[in-house]
Design a protein around this nucleic acid. Structure first.
Lengths: 212, 212
DNA sequence: GATCGACTGGGTCAGGCGACCAAGACGTCT
DNA sequence: AGACGTCTTGGTCGCCTGACCCAGTCGATC
């Protein structure tokens, strides 16, 4: 094995671990399986990571970052807000359908983190990031299509995330593409129904805050 | 340990395993942990189950049956269909909030089954049962409150299940009760919006107009 | 009360696990 | 060239796992 800095080796191991988890599941991602995937010795693992859980914590952070970037890149220009929401959902679904093992791995990682005291706080933080990403997309979409939201944006973001979670769960369980499409249509309708035409140009509009 | 028939011992072990999984997770539900919980010897386990996976298959079937009974018992009499859907969601949420470890265990079991070739078909079947339960509730609720559904009932059932999945995921991750309530309000609105007044009583009655 | 099949449980096996150590290899700076 | 700190590695430790064996116990039946 070539000589690597600790930081580089950590990154290599995290990516190898992710491949093992995608393929075989969190449970089978043992230190030995990971170093075999990365083609390095077992001792190298514990040279750069104090423990397997420390590596999983870094892996979790990596996955969250990657997921966040992917969702934010899905902003498309659409004429109507319904179409914008619908194509945003489609972009997510395409990602899910192309890499189901990746989403499944993510679900397993969340479960694992919830069971591990040192990592138990991570899923909550990850969820807040998702909601925040959803909020950004909804705000951006509304701005681009000239509407504003009739209900608090935080609430609507939660709804959107719930829809994607439900979409993920159901599709992973039964792989029914048409049922998924129907769900996305429904979600786009339900969310777009909460939009009203923007009254004025945002800059000079006074009432910014909107209590519950 | 008292003498038990194989069938009884299997049932005792499945329930003990379920307690261990609720408390510690699927991963830590080893044969030794299970027999300790059930207060019997390790050999008794392999006397009635050929392997740990065989026991988990039986456990999965047990959980699905229990879950199904719980959801179907939640039918309440309401004046409006929106209220019926809302209270149905609330009944599910109360169950979730009272026994979060049970829902978490269920999610873990689904993940485990998906990773185990012999059990991989079970989550899909379980999901279809859920959708079927949701359909029964929606049909029953519509009948009780004098409405019919404007879109195919199969599609709407899928939406309802997706909402409960999304609700489960988000609440397990951040335990935010008010966000959950907001999501349920939204879901009740969105689903009730798909109802229209029933025009007639199906069986033999002549067509009769029934406003609202 | 003898027999026989069903049931019980202590003990053991090989294998996989996370973690660790001590010795060697390498690059770099003096 | 020599010395030093960083990196690499094979080997090993104690522990836990699922599975299994076999001697022993129990209770129904004859």
């Amino acid at each position: 094995m070539a000589r690597l800095s600790s930081a580089d080796r950590r990154a290599v191991l995290v990516r190898a671990a992710l491949r093992v988890i995608d393929r075989d599941g969190v449970y089978r991602a043992t230190t030995r399986a990971i170093v075999a995937e990365a083609e390095m010795s077992l001792a190298s693992f514990h040279y750069v990571f104090r423990s397997r859980d420390e590596m999983l914590g870094e892996l979790f952070a990596f996955v969250v970052r990657r997921e966040e970037e992917a969702t934010l890149a899905a902003l498309s220009s659409s004429v109507s807000i319904r179409q914008a929401v619908r194509s945003g959902l489609q972009a997510y679904f395409d990602l899910l359908a192309a890499h189901p093992e990746r989403e499944q791995a993510l679900q397993e990682l969340i479960q694992y983190a919830l069971r591990t005291p040192e990592l138990a706080a991570l899923p909550g933080a990850q969820y807040r990031r998702y909601v925040h990403s959803a909020q950004t997309m909804l705000e951006h979409g509304a701005e681009l299509t000239g509407v504003r939201w009739a209900i608090p944006i935080e609430q609507l973001s939660g709804v959107l995330v719930a829809f994607t979670d439900g979409l993920t769960m159901s599709w992973l369980a039964n792989r029914d593409d048409s049922a998924a499409a129907a769900l996305m249509e429904f979600a786009a309708d339900a969310i777009a129904a909460q939009s009203v035409p923007a009254r004025s140009i945002p800059a000079s509009d006074p009432p910014r805050e909107q209590p519950q």
